[in-house]
Amino acid sequence: MTALPVPSRGTTPPAGRDTRPAGGRRRDWRMAAEIVVFTAPALLLFAVFVVWPILRAVQFSLYRWKGFGPLVDFVGLQNYVAVLTDEVFTGAVGHNLIIVVASILIQLPLGLAIALLLNRRMRGQGMLRTIIFVPYVLSEVIAGVVWFQLLQPGRGVIEAMLGTVGLAGPFQGFLGTPSLALPTLVVVLTWKYVGLAVLLFLAGLQGVPDELSEAAQIDGASWWQTQWRVTIPLLGPTIRMWAFLSMIGSLQLFDMVWILTGGGPANATTTMATFLVNEGTKRQNYGIAAAASVVLFVIALLMAVLYQRFVLRRDTADADVTRGVR
């Protein structure tokens, strides 16, 4: 018998290639062939459509190129200088960071509160979960188009509702007023994405054993104390990973902005992604667009690495514990 594929759980044992009995060479070749054949389609797709375009982005970023003819106008890091000194782009980075922070600061307490409230025996629980999931499964485009209509200045229903309580909407509408556009965008994003947080937290709560909170209550803890001291800390891994997903999503934000404001008014809602699409497809500044995309990637990577290093490390360290809970 040759090196049997040894399924391993969780941890990876060192490859046992020395334990192979002699005479298994032909079978080794066979196994190698199988590995190649099985992984080839995925690797090919990945190489052609993910790795290659990303390498090309790095290459483009070093040239001035309008999309025609060969890449000849090498400009070194000039595109990066141009991008990083462009107020529209630095503003876009700021908007992305504001959205990252605001999404977490708003959706985390809101999602937690809703999840804790719903995490009990009540009528219509399943129905509620489904309803909360509705905005999440809609595409950003559809959600954006609907909200765009609701927010239309002068004739949208939101202004009409404000009117009934004696308030007036801003003259140019919520999306047309530079100081209000970004907060409005954050509100719409919250509506769209808080459901995901609720569902993930609810699923995480199911992994928290009843006995713990029961024990806490027997010890005299109030409902709030139980949630705060027992339940929420046990939800830690779920929360931390949700925040990670949310962060990465916020950094790449494009669709919703493109539909609601197109990055305006006066660049008040430009994100890195809308900036680079604008430069690339509308102005044909491929070099600038590529430099912006590399900067976007570096920022995302940095945040991911830092998050992994300082926040998630605990979770991977005691991954077996969470796995047990799961």
């Binding site: 459509f49 993910v50 990303i54 982005a57 483009f60 790449q252 494009f254 690339g280």
Partner: peptide, 8 residues
């Protein structure tokens, strides 16, 4: 998003 222009 990062690779969108070269992908295009």
């Amino acid at each position: 998003t990062v690779a969108i222009i070269p992908l295009f």
